[in-house]
């Protein structure tokens, strides 16, 4: 089937060229086009407002450890975008992962088929002891990532992923390690409910869904970003549980 691949190659090349062409447009006067690399202008765009945290209030200065009660309060601006300004996206994002997990659960419909164990009985000693050592450390690192999500790079998703890897390694190493299905679903549901609950609470008290109803404290403090840390904790648990669930299903299918 060489011929078919050739056509595919030609068409994808044409597609790539067209996309490339989009970057090489020389704008005529007054026209706006894609910015060159490194020249993304942020001023008088929404990004500028997010940086100055001045969407509702027209605040100019955000000083580390000093400016108080800003509208979003999280030092890590990406986190403020993810969990505060565009938290609806993140909620959508969580549901996508939740649906995927549910979908995989259905597809591999494990209830009736016998469960396969991945790890051999006598997996190598080094692996076992190493993972025994690493497991708690990974969990700790994960929790640090999502707890300090609003201060340092990282957040709910990344923390959850680290936790999931911890569990994955545990499952890889010894096959007696058994996570009961019920526990995963419980964690998932409670995390999901708490996230949506936070949003609904914001709706009830402040009038719009997912609105921040807690004080935002001073930038840089641990308790400084209103509901963002709570959202991130929920996200972390959810993502962690879901990824472990997905991995568990894939292993046992």
């Amino acid at each position: 089937m060489k011929f078919r691949n050739l056509i595919a190659l030609v068409i994808t090349a044409a597609f790539a060229l067209i996309i490339l062409q989009a970057f090489t447009i020389t704008p005529a006067a007054g026209e706006i086009t894609l910015n060159e690399f490194g020249k993304a202008d942020i001023n008088n765009r929404t990004a500028q407002l997010y940086l100055n945290k001045s969407v509702n209030t027209d605040n100019k200065k955000v000083i580390y450890q000093e400016s108080k009660n800003l509208e979003s309060g999280s030092a890590n601006i990406v986190t403020s975008v993810v969990a505060n300004y565009r938290s609806f996206d993140t909620l959508g994002e969580i549901t996508v992962l939740f649906l995927a997990a549910a979908g995989i659960g259905v597809v591999l419909n494990l209830e009736n088929s016998k469960k396969k164990k991945f790890a051999a009985d006598d997996s190598s000693l080094i692996l076992n002891t190493g993972i025994k050592l690493l497991f708690p450390l990974l969990l700790l690192a994960g929790t640090y990532i999502f707890v300090y999500g609003h201060l340092s790079p990282g957040g709910g998703f990344q923390g959850g992923a680290v936790i999931a890897t911890a569990f994955l390694l545990k499952m890889l190493s010894d096959n007696k390690f058994e996570i009961k299905e019920i526990s995963i679903t419980l964690v998932e549901s409670t995390a999901g409910i708490s996230f949506v609950g936070l949003g609904l609470y914001g709706l009830v008290t402040r009038g719009s869904f997912l609105e921040n109803f807690m004080a935002t404290g001073t930038v840089g403090q641990l308790f400084s970003a209103g509901i963002i840390p709570l959202i991130y904790i929920a996200i972390a648990f959810k993502v962690g549980a879901e990824l472990t669930n997905i991995v568990k299903n894939l292993i046992e299918a």
């Binding site: 078919r4 056509i7 595919a8 068409i11 994808t12 044409a14 597609f15 067209i18």
Partner: peptide, 16 residues
């Protein structure tokens, strides 16, 4: 299915 995906890219290229 690969033909289907091929047609969608093809449509893009033709319309462009």
């Amino acid at each position: 299915v690969q033909n289907y995906a091929l047609y969608s890219v093809l449509l893009f290229v033709i319309l462009a």
